[in-house]
Design a protein around this nucleic acid. Structure first.
Length: 497
RNA sequence: CGGGGCGUAGCGCAGUAGGCUAGCGCGCUGCGUUUGGGACGCAGAGGUCGCCGGUUCGAGUCCGGCCGCCCCGACCA
């Protein structure tokens, strides 16, 4: 019988769970405290890069699982392309090189000798994959070609933050090639919707789909779409992107096919990605002053069991009951961890696991054993409301309902918070005021100059034109609140990570 | 790269008119008592005081240089 599906913590952690800054007092510090004290990540000896610790990596693995299932379900296959990219590849697409040049890490030496051609450590893989696609695609029958890869990438960042921006990070990058513009655009939007579905149904984070303005667009894309999430300090976090690349990379890398009429045509390509930044999104969208709050479907540990006993006799009684209780839960796939650490009081364990964000705590003591019950405590709520005594009968159903409830409640809380912090504005003064403590939604022309003006005046950036809202709000006759010219639609502005 | 802050035990810190064996809390190890919201006692372990150089009889403390980290900005997923 499996005692636990999660690696047991045999030792108490070196970090004390106290001493985390409050969110109000210092949000940046709160974030750093949580990430480190909940054992998600640690600093590394190399500036700007991080060590993802087992608990953080399990969270990432669950994110990977949720995304990978969805990619497979939409017909994509995984592959792996090399870390090193010839410098000349990067240079083939003019906008691409222009955008990425400042953040490239370049290998100039190998085997003790200077290389004839420097190798770029991939900042993204459009170029190597484009090169491969040009060899693989011959006929319209080869299309669409739907590939994803899980990989690390490197971007030389000036300023880094754990998970949110590190010089090396993990992500998935999808790359697809299509016969027509329509097909490629459809793919771009489909994968954006996959990200939305993942964010809402796995991470319990409400996200807004946007089309990016020109200045926020991916280097080399025709259009960039994103999902934007609101963090606990009301800043925005771009949590996933999907790019329609048109024929830009097809032309740079000769990605061509022969159509039904035996004509040679350039493909239309897309790319889309979600990174370990999603971990940061989860921390900041849900966390509170007691620590992490992990969405149940991604949490490495969904249920932590804290046995309570006074002496050896009770210990045996309780532990036997605990194993009996957990076995069926584990069998149906719940991620259960039994905290059997000796010498720690239950109270310490309660706080410890709350800090680590475990959605459900199950307390089992002599009284519960006698009553054929357990005490369930949910992390998404506080005080008495969070606790309920539950019968051991039907426990699988009780716990799985509770996990679903918690997911729904966390999504509802995050949605209410976000909706309560968006302000519709119709003048530039109102926009400037709004972005000091919320998101602003305003008619916007989408010009880089206006984005830059807003950035300079307020530190807030253009987050994009929300797709859903602009279906109903016609920009006809509406003016950009910044420059007064014809608006393209409503756009969000806010401080962002 | 500019502005601010900080480097003393795993973590948080104290210690500087230059002085003797470098300290406190938490954590860690052992034993015992404890255990339904962060237990307690006793006994222990743990340090090139970020690095290099200088001043001095003597430097964690003073001087010079360097390195690193965090926060705020300019760039970005």
């Amino acid at each position: 019988m499996a005692v636990s599906t999660t690696p047991p913590l045999r030792r108490r952690n070196a970090m004390t769970s106290r001493q985390i800054a409050s969110q109000d007092e210092d949000y940046a510090r709160w974030y750093n405290d949580i990430v480190q004290k909940a054992d998600l990540a640690d600093y590394s000896p190399v500036r700007g890069s991080m060590i993802i610790k087992p608990y953080g990596y399990e969270l990432w693995e669950n994110i990977q699982g949720g995304l990978d299932r969805r990619f497979k379900a939409t017909g994509h296959k995984n592959a792996y392309f090399p870390l090193f990219i010839p410098m000349s590849f990067i240079e083939k697409e003019s906008k691409h090189i222009e955008g990425f040049a400042p953040e490239l890490a370049v290998v100039t030496h190998g085997g003790g000798k200077e290389l004839e051609e420097p190798l770029v450590v991939r900042p993204t893989s459009e170029t190597v994959i484009g090169h491969a696609f040009s060899k693989w695609i011959h006929s319209y029958r080869d299309l669409p070609l739907l590939i994803n890869q899980w990989a690390n990438v490197v971007r030389w960042e000036m300023r880094t933050r754990l998970f949110l921006r590190t010089m090396e990070f993990l992500w998935q990058e999808g790359h697809t090639a299509h016969a027509t513009e329509e097909d490629a655009i459809e793919e771009t939007m489909r994968m954006l919707d996959v990200y939305v579905d993942f964010a809402i149904n796995e991470a319990a984070i409400p996200v807004i789909k946007t089309r990016k303005s020109e200045s926020e667009r991916f280097a080399g894309a025709i259009e960039t779409y994103s999902i934007e999430a609101m963090m606990g300090n009301k800043w925005a976090l771009q949590s996933g992107t999907s790019h329609y690349l048109g024929q830009n990379f097809a032309k740079a890398f000769d990605i061509m096919y022969t159509d039904e009429s035996n004509e040679r045509q350039y493909c239309y390509t897309t790319s889309w990605g979600v990174s370990t930044r999603m971990v940061g999104a989860i921390v900041m969208a849900h966390g509170d002053d007691r620590g992490l709050r992990l969405p149940p479907r991604l949490a490495p540990i969904q249920v932590v069991v804290v046995p309570i006993y006074r002496d050896e006799e009770q210990h045996d009684l309780v532990m036997n009951a605990v194993l009996d209780i957990c076995d069926p839960l584990i069998t149906v796939g719940m991620r259960v961890h039994i905290d059997d650490r000796e010498g720690l009081t239950p109270g310490f364990k309660f706080n410890d696991w709350e800090m680590r964000g475990v959605p459900v705590r199950m307390e089992v003591g002599p009284r519960d054993v006698e009553n054929n019950s357990v005490m369930l405590v949910r992390r998404d709520q506080e005080g008495k409301a969070a606790k309920q005594s539950a019968s051991r009968d039907n426990l699988i159903q009780t716990v799985s309902r509770l996990l679903n409830d918690i997911h729904r409640e966390m999504l509802a809380q995050a949605t209410a918070f976000r909706n309560g912090n968006i302000r519709l504005v119709d003048t530039y003064d109102a926009l400037k005021e709004a972005v000091t403590d919320s998101w602003a939604l305003a008619y916007h022309c989408g010009q880089p100059a206006c984005d830059a003006t807003v950035k300079e005046d307020t530190k807030a950036s253009s987050r994009g034109f929300p797709l859903d809202k602009n279906e109903t709000w016609s920009p006809d006759g509406e003016k950009c609140v910044v420059c007064g010219k014809q608006a393209l639609g409503m756009a969000y502005f806010s401080r962002a990570y």
